[in-house]
Design a protein around this nucleic acid. Structure first.
Lengths: 135, 135
DNA sequence: CCGCATCCTACCGGATACTG
DNA sequence: CAGTATCCGGTAGGATGCGG
């Protein structure tokens, strides 16, 4: 038996709204607001779609407290320039907050904002998905 | 007022498990299974990370019933070769099922599998996120 | 030492044209 | 309609260097 072990009825996988509920909620907004939502979703998917963005955020989702550049680099096996770019994008999107400490050795910490934290259940959901399924 | 309108206390954004719950659940598995889960998550993030994968899946998440190649192509504004590749990958991952009808004009339909459907609340969550936040 | 910027190379994704 | 073939540009990845 190397496949997914019979999971002990993992809770939470069906958490979140159904398609019908989501569509109904969507109807409750006026067209202008609906358009803004669509654009935001598109932009969000675009950001999350870039290579390693999800992996980076997921690292923050399962970490407790701030993370450092080198920690992410080794943990994720990602090239430093790419990591740097992603961190800048996420900081610009106000999903991460960058704090530099003027010390020796130097230290830079990245902390997820509230905006990012409200995104984290997504990664928990993906984790649960992996408990039940394989790829 | 062009920013996000004060949302009428949208439900569902906090749906899903917290980080603590997720980590606790993780502890309940033996090391071998934990390793499998990690690999699956990594593979999943890798797949979802590729350009337009999330957008394609999200299209299925909010659609009712199967979708066709041309529909996705126009709806998502994505190059045909790229769409073709993504659909092949998703089909190989058993997230989509491809059904070809021998007709004129030819028709090919893609249907999300149960594996994919259990992933859909993620997209609903992202949609809700866009209701509360901006990018 | 750590956090990046730079240079270069390889590959991936976009546009277009074409076929079953 | 549903893809493939081809070409090309952008972007990720690896190595290296350097400032703080």
């Amino acid at each position: 038996m190397t496949g997914p072990t019979d999971p002990p009825d993992v809770p939470g996988l069906s958490a979140g709204l159904s398609r019908e509920e989501a569509l109904a909620l969507r109807e409750s907004f006026d067209p202008d607001e609906r358009e803004r939502i669509d654009e935001t979703v598109a932009a969000l998917l675009d950001l999350l779609g870039k290579a390693h963005t999800m992996a980076v955020l997921s690292a923050f989702a399962f970490a407790d407290g701030p993370l450092r550049f080198s920690g992410l680099e080794s943990q994720l096996d990602i090239a430093p320039n790419t990591l740097s770019t992603r961190l800048q994008e996420l900081t610009a999107a106000e999903l991460l907050e960058r704090t530099a400490y003027d010390e020796v050795p130097p230290r830079v910490e990245y902390t997820p904002t509230e905006k990012a934290e409200s995104l984290f259940p997504v990664f928990a959901h993906l984790h649960h998905w992996a408990i039940e399924y394989d790829l």
